[in-house]
Design a protein around this nucleic acid. Structure first.
Lengths: 253, 253
DNA sequence: GCCTCTTGGTGTATTTTGAACACAATACTA
DNA sequence: TAGTATTGTGTTCAAAATACACCAAGAGGC
């Protein structure tokens, strides 16, 4: 939350720079230690949590805007981003719109406007992300999907919609490629699928089908160090993966 | 295209009524005589064709806006509508933005603004539609998908994206229910699937699979009148259909 | 070192599903 | 009433999904 002077400065700058009525909110997924994670922000001086978001510069393509916003939050550029839905209820941001009523008249207060928000989901390699709060926030952190805090406004709905979209697109987008590190074991990849789909899969059939798609290349060296048998390391063959996705990975899970 | 006075009136009204920077464009699909059809508009005094579209009232949910716009073009209310993509390139409407430069300075010209457009696709029962031009247009007509005119701005891309989405969602949305009349024969339904997917399907396997889903109810009376064997009439069991779609109609086509 | 436990990798039998095709039924035509 | 075009149903064969058995490799206890 801003104090009055911060608010005035922000609003002046926003009016000059950004398109009115339009915002972007991002659901950033990562995968670490067998858990699907989401990046969330905690607002200064309040127990309120948000998805990373921002506005669109007056002459900026919206995909670039989403990329810019996420670069600020993660340190990563060229992130895998998919637009998935516009949330356009006139009341969706009412608490935001009224929040600064006591500081500024609505005509001068950027946040008093109605905003449609364009929802993007992003897939990132967890270990490369450097979570960075924005000027409203005091914290930017990963949370397990099963352990996300209550989110403000309609951000809970946005998150849920993103997750539903992710499930539907699992066979049509390079989701594994973008969420896994370069090299990974088959059980790790299976855990990702199980987490996204929220159900157990048969270990042996999973392996056979995955290999059957011809989108994985096996490293020479297995992973060392862990207890028990050393699993092989795999990486995605991006060209084959993209090609297979055009038709969709056939069959359900 | 407006003359100067029409333009001034439109702009004054638009500024008071609509959200800036946001428009809606609709791809209306119908199905008639074995052909997938799209509703297009022809602008007054020009050989230029557009998709039906409009703007969002300042306090109107976007889904309602799309519904309102389509009610004006089709006479139908409560149309099946799906938001599918936002087109947000800053240059997407450049020709529109410059079109009235000689009549009004940009600051007073609504169309000189940048617009993001939210793409909706609509599915309607062809025979119930009463195509109605808007104030820019001299004609509003159905065109075969294979015979659509060149569309202005990025409307060609919007149409193509809608069609791709339609294909992907065929097993997840009640597309048959919304495009077919109440009663139809199995070969007619098959033609719809073949048209959307743009490939031939085996008549007998199609029939067995469709019936296997348990989403159709067969009428007592077959269709009379045509030459040759009278086919049965079917209608969708909406409750079962919706239920089956939650999981997706399993298998590909 | 040997046994056992745990985890990863491969093979096989059974069931289910999908594709291809033959044939019967119906309604109009000649 | 035979002919023809079209619709409805059944059967066959192959492919794919599922379930399960077995083998391999590494770690720790004794």
């Amino acid at each position: 939350m801003f104090n009055k002077q911060e608010l005035i400065d922000f609003c002046n700058n926003a009016r000059d720079s950004y398109l009115a009525h339009i915002s972007i909110d991002c659901v950033v997924f990562g995968f670490h230690e067998g858990q699907l994670k989401v990046l969330v922000l905690k607002m200064k001086n309040e127990q309120s949590w948000y998805l990373p978001g921002g506005f669109v510069l007056k002459n900026e393509p919206i995909d670039e805007a989403a990329n810019r916003i996420l670069k600020d939050r993660t340190g990563l550029d060229e992130i895998f981003l998919q637009q998935f839905h516009v949330f356009g209820d006139p009341d969706r941001s009412r608490p935001h719109r009224e929040m600064y009523n006591h500081m500024l008249p609505p005509s001068e207060n950027w946040f008093a406007n109605r905003f449609l928000t364009i929802g993007y989901y992003a897939l990132v390699d967890f270990v490369h992300v450097n979570p960075t709060p924005d000027s409203h926030s005091e914290a930017c952190t990963w949370r397990d999907l099963a352990d996300t805090p209550q989110l403000e406004l309609d951000h809970g709905v946005i998150l849920k919609t993103a997750l539903d979209t992710l499930r539907l697109q699992l066979n049509y987008q390079p989701i594994g490629y973008n969420l896994m590190p370069k090299e990974f074991t088959m059980p790790e990849l299976q855990k990702l699928y199980e987490t996204i789909l929220d159900k157990k899969l048969d270990r042996r059939n999973f392996q056979r089908r995955m290999l059957g798609f011809g989108i994985l290349t096996r490293s020479e060296k297995p992973r060392k160090g862990g207890a028990h048998k050393a699993p092989y390391l795999y990486s995605f063959d991006l060209a084959n993966y993209q090609n297979a996705l055009k038709e969709g990975l056939k069959g359900g899970w």
